[in-house]
Design a protein around this nucleic acid. Structure first.
Lengths: 338, 338
DNA sequence: CTGAAAGCGCTTACAG
DNA sequence: CTGAAAGCGCTTACAG
């Protein structure tokens, strides 16, 4: 009310002086730590409420050696742009972080490049980090482990210091494949991206599991990984068609989009001539005709869990070293029997 | 080399003591500010290089009342998920910020909700902010202006304190509309999203401009804004078809995707029965058959410029109050003449 | 060109 | 239950 300008921020010292108590007391009233009389506490709290005092987080940071920031690392690979995955996940992270008064420091870089991550770590700008994607040989995870800073990974990793939060891609892919096998498909092609992604390996394993469980020999010749290149993909799709596949599982919707495009170009009809299934159930394929059978995951939940576990680690609370979230199989026109 | 563990970080005081100089001198050697002998500076720089000293940014922050963070606000509206726009833009921001040793503090919230933004501002966690989307009555921009913190907007705004960086949606939409008019289309429908977005208004203006310039009466009855609801949109598309439109311009690719879906459902062929054009040229429609005529913008560039200008403002350098970036019109099958 | 000292705004043993 | 004082690791007038 009486405050004329916002130039000068009120500090803990101002409050202490105004109330005739020590800074220690004010600090304790605010933080809730340490013994303090209920009456004194009330008095302080009322005062700061009225004069809307807000603590200087930077000063707090310095005194406590904490930043109240968590780093979030997004890989800058081109295909990422296409997937709404990261955005949904980020929403979840932010939602949890905000309730704990933490903020998100965003970093984007290539997975082999640890420099951005090193920067925020050596600059002491974060208390922990979340890696949004894991790799088979994960430089970033290793670096964080070596430096001893708490971190969570979205996706599995063999770096044991990590707090892992993952969707069950293996079971998901296994169930999808099993269903397709039960639908009497014999030659099911699997098309995937970078083999260095842990998630690619998990899906492959699920695919193989399904065959094993059904006692059907795996169609090894129909497994195509590393299909990040559209030209290469087109070429391999032709190969797949020649080999007489009756179904193609794509490991993500962007990939599946490219597959569908190629099939159209080749005048191969879905699902009449060949069945198609995908991962993610994202908006990328939302408008496709026919509708596409897909595996669906809750990405926001994934972000929330990762953030919550990381916060627990930062605050030395109990944590789950590894959490696995569920999935849904959504059957649609693209795998309909003739 | 000799360092056995990373537990204890080396400080400016350690360096000073080891070298027999004052902390002031060390500080000056590092920052480059203030007079200092070339020889002394060398000595200090060599030492910190060798012992890989890294400054504590938090301490620096407190002393300078600077955070070396910029806040980036992403609106949490559902349709955002679909557009790769923000991700590309973020890449650009990060690229510039990193070179200046700044980091990105990410915030996500509803446009009417200023609480998240207030939090990072009152917590003094950022030196400036970038708003990734503007609104006709922009609460967040107004709040930042009132608080006197430097900010840039991606998109236009009437809040004069803002540093505006925008794509020329008005000219883009005008040129697209003009081309369609020249192609002898008479009844061009315009379908757009939220009228409260500044960008929606700009596109509308461009559309109207084109008619005016061509001395053709505007097809007012074919303008449909606020089409964020799929059910509503479907209904309006039927209306548009009944009214005999020969073309539909959609204000973004997600919207256009829904339009195309509805047209397919109604067995209306593109481009034979009706032409279609869109904005953004994003991956969302990449695989559509026919290919879709679209306006294309350089989103990464947009982020880079916004970030650069904001940094200049923060460091009290000269700034451009408003920057407008170009666009491309990409003509494809969806507007081909019969 | 260099340094002693105060200051940024908090927290936290330690003592009472 | 409360406080004086030291400390977090920098920067920056001020003086020499």
């Amino acid at each position: 009310m009486v405050q004329e300008n916002t130039v000068k921020n009120i500090t803990i010292a101002d409050v202490a002086e105004a109330l005739g108590v020590s800074k220690t007391t004010v600090s304790r009233a605010i933080s809730g730590k340490g013994r303090i009389g209920a009456e004194t506490r009330e008095k302080v709290l009322d005062y700061i409420e009225e004069h809307n005092y807000t603590p200087n987080v930077i000063a707090k940071s310095l005194a406590q050696s904490k930043t109240y920031n968590i780093g979030v690392m997004i890989p800058s690979e081109y295909d990422i742009i296409d997937l709404p995955f990261f955005q949904s996940c980020l929403f979840g992270i932010q939602e949890i972080a905000a309730t704990m008064d933490y903020d998100i420091l965003l970093t984007i870089s290539k997975p082999e490049d640890t420099s951005q991550l090193e920067r925020i770590v050596t600059n002491r700008k974060v208390d922990g980090v979340i890696l949004m994607r894991t790799f088979v040989d994960d430089k970033q995870a290793k670096m964080l482990a070596k430096r001893g800073i708490p971190f969570a990974t979205v996706g599995g990793t063999n770096v044991k210091e990590a707090i892992q939060v993952d969707q069950d891609h293996q079971s998901a892919c296994k169930e999808l494949t099993s269903i397709l096998l039960m639908k009497k498909m014999k030659r099911i092609a699997l098309v995937g991206g970078d083999e260095k992604h842990v998630v690619t390996q998990k899906r492959l394993k699920g695919y193989l599991d399904a065959f094993k469980e059904a006692h059907i020999p795996v169609t090894e010749d129909l497994i195509y990984l590393g299909m990040n290149n559209p030209v290469l993909l087109d070429q391999k799709i032709e190969e797949i068609l020649k080999k007489g596949a009756d179904c193609i599982i794509s490991m993500d919707d962007a990939l599946c989009g490219s597959v569908l495009k190629k099939l159209r170009a080749e005048h191969v009809k879905v699902p009449q001539d060949i069945k198609v299934a995908s991962f993610y159930n994202s908006s990328v394929l939302e408008n496709n005709v026919p509708s596409i059978t897909s595996l669906s995951f809750d990405e926001k939940e994934l972000g929330m869990v990762a953030c919550r576990e990381l916060m627990n680690a930062i605050e030395d609370k109990e944590i789950n070293r590894a959490t696995t979230l569920g999935y849904q199989v959504i059957l649609r026109e693209s795998t309909l029997q003739a």
